[in-house]
C-alpha cells in the first residue's frame, strides 16, 4: 500500500519537496496557510498566477506553490502582476514576496497598485531583515538593531507598511503574524475572494539572519514574542503612539468598496470599440 497522500499535495510542486527554508523559518507557515486558504475557498489553481520577486519568501510561490508562476526581478512583482491581471482579469493573481521586495526596492509599485485598486492579492512576508543576502538592514528593521550593514545600530524607524497601503487607497488591508495562523488563513481567503487591491502584511520570523541578532534563537522564540506583542486593531484604536511603540497591531485595517482598475479599463475599451463601430455605420 502506498502512503496516504496529504490533501494539500496537489497544491505544491511535489517533485522539488522537501522545501529548503531554514529550520524555524516563517515561510513554511505562510505556504501552509496559503495552500489551506486556496483549498478552503475552492480556488482552481489552474486559474491562478502567482508572482514573486527575489528573496526567501518569494520561494513560497516559486517554486513551491503549483500554479502558473512568474518569478521576477527584485522589487518588481507587483508591476509584472499588473500586466498579467490587465490582460487576464479572469485569473486570480497573487503576489507573495518579502518586505525588501515589496516595501523597499519596490515600494513605489506597491503604493501605485494600491492607488489604482487593481484586483491583486499581495501577501507581504515581513521578516524585518534582508535574510537571503545574509542579514542586512531592511526598511522594516526596528531602530536600534545591529545588522551586517548597521553594525553599530540602525538609526532608521521601521516602515509600517500596511498603514501605508491603507493610506494609498487599497480595498482590503490586514496585518497578522505567523503565530496567528487561522485568522491569517481566513484573511487570505477574504483577500483572494474579493475584488480590488488586497494587502496582508504577515509578520514572520527569520531566526537564522535576524533572530540571532536580537536574541531570538528559534522560531518558537519569535512566535512567543508575536503572541505577546500582538494587539487587536480594535483595542489599539484607543491607545497612544507611545503605548503602541513596541506592539504589533493585528487584524483587518481596512475593508472598503472602490472601483476596480481593470474593470474600469475594460469599460473604456468597450466604449471606444462601440464608438468606432458607430463611426463606421455612420460612414456606411
Amino acid at each position: 500500500m502506498s502512503e496516504p497522500r496529504h490533501r494539500l499535495m496537489d497544491f505544491v510542486r511535489e517533485e522539488i519537496m522537501p522545501h529548503r527554508f531554514c529550520s524555524g523559518c516563517g515561510c513554511g507557515t505562510v505556504l501552509n496557510a496559503f495552500t489551506n486558504a486556496v483549498e478552503g475557498i475552492g480556488l482552481d489553481s489552474a486559474k491562478m498566477v502567482c508572482v514573486s520577486g527575489i528573496g526567501c519568501s518569494s520561494w513560497i510561490p516559486s517554486p513551491y506553490f503549483k500554479s502558473d508562476t512568474l518569478h521576477t526581478t527584485h522589487g518588481r512583482p507587483i508591476a509584472f502582476a499588473t500586466g498579467v491581471k490587465v490582460m487576464r482579469p479572469d485569473l486570480t493573481v497573487v503576489v507573495i514576496a518579502g518586505d525588501g521586495d515589496v516595501a523597499g526596492i519596490g515600494g513605489n509599485h506597491l503604493i501605485h497598485a494600491a492607488r489604482r485598486n487593481i484586483d491583486l492579492s499581495v501577501f507581504m512576508v515581513n521578516n524585518m531583515i534582508y535574510g537571503m543576502t545574509g542579514g542586512q538592514v531592511a526598511p522594516t528593521t526596528p531602530a536600534g538593531v545591529k545588522t551586517t550593514t548597521t553594525p553599530h545600530r540602525n538609526v532608521e524607524p521601521a516602515f509600517k507598511v500596511a498603514d501605508l497601503v491603507v493610506a494609498a487607497g487599497a480595498s482590503y488591508v490586514a496585518r497578522w503574524t505567523t503565530y496567528h495562523v487561522f485568522p491569517l488563513l481566513e484573511s487570505m481567503q477574504n483577500a483572494m475572494s474579493r475584488k480590488g487591491f488586497s494587502f496582508i502584511e504577515i509578520m514572520s520570523q527569520c531566526p537564522e539572519n535576524y533572530g540571532r541578532r536580537i536574541g531570538l534563537r528559534t522560531g518558537i522564540d519569535f512566535l512567543r514574542q508575536f503572541k505577546e506583542k500582538a494587539i487587536r486593531v480594535d483595542k489599539a484604536r484607543g491607545m497612544t503612539e507611545e503605548e503602541l511603540e513596541d506592539r504589533i497591531v493585528i487584524g483587518k485595517l481596512c475593508d472598503v468598496e472602490r472601483p476596480e482598475y481593470v474593470t474600469e479599463l475594460q469599460k473604456v475599451t468597450a466604449e471606444q470599440v462601440d464608438l468606432l463601430r458607430a463611426e463606421k455605420e455612420k460612414v456606411d
Binding site: V51, D68, L70, T72, T73, G75, R76, A79, F80, A81, T82, G83, V84, K85, V86, M87, N108, H109, H112, L265, Q266, V268, T269, E271, Q272, V273, L275, L276
Partner: peptide, 25 residues
Amino acid sequence: PKAGGICIQMEDELASMAAIIGAAW
C-alpha cells in the same frame, strides 16, 4: 482601446517593462 486593446501609464519605466512582460505571458 478602439481596436479592443488596453493602454496604461505605469509609475515608471521599470514597471512599464515589467507589465509588458507579464502581459506577454
